[in-house]
Amino acid sequence: MENSFSYIAGSRAFHGSIPLVMGTRFDMLVCDIERRPAQDIWENICSNLAGMDGLLSRFSPESEVYKINEGLVSTLSPDLQTVLEICSGWWLRTGGLFDITKHDFRKLRWSAGAIDTGGEKLDFGGMGKGLALKYIQDLMESRGVTSAFVDFGSSSILAMGSHPFGPCWKTSVANPYEEGQVCEVCLKDNCLSVSGNRPSYSGHIINPGDGTPVNSRRIVTVVGRDPLEAEVLSTAMMIATPQERESIMENFPETEVKTYDL
């Protein structure tokens, strides 16, 4: 996997980037850190992102998900079983709105080492970046990182600590339909996930209830502590009715969801 990095010695900051992983771009800025530990973190992240891409990609013939979707295997690795169990939990907590089959999650049957998809296709696009950021969050905390800004495809942002010269990481959310911004968020030891359509890419979120694509000019922002939770909820909230939103979010009092109809 192609990547590049640079260390800004005068600022004790490390910037790493991957031009294409999980279908998008990845950027990481870590501040107040020496070059060697930063580079170790970067190598760990690159290795794990490549591994996740290899596990969850729908397109790579080498990935486990690809082989399962094509009916080439019915075996299940422990790693993918863990991811499926996480997805199962989120399917329940979102009242079925977050669904990696985009159709009927209940048809999936798995046990240790085996899976029966019931004809459904697995698509982890709505949670892969969140899962990756959660891993990175844990990694950085364990390595004592106090200030970092991680941007995964612009729709998933992880903020560790605060900007070296400010009280937080002040981040603005762009309006995809016209010049300007939708909102500005102060991130500090939390994360931001943004879901929505854009003029050139609409209808990619599917309502599993009736199979219809969501085509509305809507942006959902979710700010919370857990990147995976934010990622899943931002997708689910794109689909949810106002009543469903209220009902689901009662279980996440620490998480802030905002919906913008543009």
């Binding site: 800004f149 010269f165 400010g166 943004v194 922002t221």
Partner: peptide, 22 residues
């Protein structure tokens, strides 16, 4: 812009987020 802020020791909003790359 963020890297420029770090280099110049300034603080401002980062126009980074959105549903896609602009």
């Amino acid at each position: 812009q963020l890297l420029q802020q770090i280099k110049t020791r300034t603080f401002a909003s980062i126009p980074a987020a959105g549903p896609s790359w602009r």
